[in-house]
Write a protein that binds this DNA or RNA. Structure first.
Lengths: 199, 199
DNA sequence: ATTTGCACTAACCAATTGGTTAAATCATTA
DNA sequence: TAATGATTTAACCAATTGGTTAGTGCAAAT
């Protein structure tokens, strides 16, 4: 009989904290609920992580750090500009549709406490910018401002997720119809990107 | 001596509640702080508004209702398609740049409690959709899905505001440079819109 | 002049909050 | 086996929370 590798206490706490902080936010989350979700005593939270603030910061940094490298990798893994942008959008959308609570959690947390951005890498923007400038210089792409270009793409990917309650109501779509709408997004965003980039 | 029309207690409470709820969110806001900001006793909050939840809902509905009609009006006030879209983007951007806390407040509140959407009008989307379909039918506009089109525009307007801490860090821009970046947005978004709509 | 009802306050309340402590248990090592 | 250090627990704590209460002052109505 193999003994199933059950996660240690610290990992269980982090997983529980992630779930509760994402659902309820920092102020709405209760240490008691986190400890119950992790199946342990409340005092253990303070034994492993000194305070609520520290526990929250750990969760936030862990989750922010997890997807930026993934996106950057998707972009650099393909050959042509169009392939790279398509891989970028596809990976981005797939990731946030699979983790729909993550964007709002990250954005709201940074909005309330911008100091948390300090530990973030800047590689994604640098990588994309350098590549776009090469393509533009070689005449394979219409000249665009890399900052505006990248932010517009990310806007169109993330916003429909974080604005879901408002957007689905305004478009008159129920749960199901809005999921279908999100599934069409990749195609729609790529249409816009192509018309922006084609020289 | 004219007596300056000082706002009544109820209005002072609403103004204070708006300020505190926007800054701290529902869970982070304290009734004590709201009452102090309004310059009154805490019991007055419950005298005029029964509970914290009710006070919050009043503030939320009031602020949501205030800018949707304004945007819709901007769109319908102009003649040509391009003029209408430009007025829409310009008004939208001007409004949220002047009220930068509003979008996150509304989106986060609805995200945490989607039930609050019930009382919202849907006129904006209907007005825009009908008009776009006419333009497309008349061959004055490239055929696009109105839902995706409208949501993409709104995404590109709002996202740089709510993602400010993250975006300014990733683009390597300080406070000042990011303000300048936001000021360029109208032009950049209009470029994209034109290339999407031109037949 | 007395009643009525609204606006307002100080004091209070039960419940909950994040955090602590001292003691118990477990595993490792000497 | 005895000692040692890490892990876990139940009980506790001071502070804060949203909300209540009984009563005060005051202007209009009777």
């Amino acid at each position: 009989m193999d003994k199933v590798q059950e996660p240690g206490t610290e990992a269980r706490i982090l997983a529980a904290a992630e779930e509760i902080f994402m659902r309820d936010g920092f102020d709405g989350a209760r240490m008691q609920v986190i400890s119950e979700t992790a199946g342990i005593n409340k005092a253990m939270l303070h034994y492993y992580f000194r305070s609520k603030e520290n526990l929250f910061e750990q969760v936030l940094q862990k989750r922010i750090g997890s997807f930026l490298p993934e996106i950057t990798a998707a972009f650099t893994s393909k050959m042509t500009l169009d392939q790279r942008l398509e891989a970028f959008v596809e990976t981005y959308l797939k990731f946030i549709i699979a983790n729909p609570q993550l964007p709002m959690f990250v954005l709201y947390s940074l909005y309330r406490n911008p100091a948390s951005t300090i530990h973030l890498p800047r590689t994604l923007f640098e990588v994309v910018t350098r590549y776009l400038q090469e393509e533009i210089h070689a005449g394979r792409m219409k000249p665009v401002d890399p900052g505006h270009f990248l932010l517009s793409i990310i806007s169109m990917c993330i916003f429909p997720i974080i604005a879901r309650p408002l957007a689905s109501h305004m478009l008159g779509k129920d749960q199901h119809a809005y999921d279908a709408f999100l599934a069409e997004r990749k195609t729609e965003i790529m249409k816009i990107i192509r018309v922006m980039t084609l020289p």
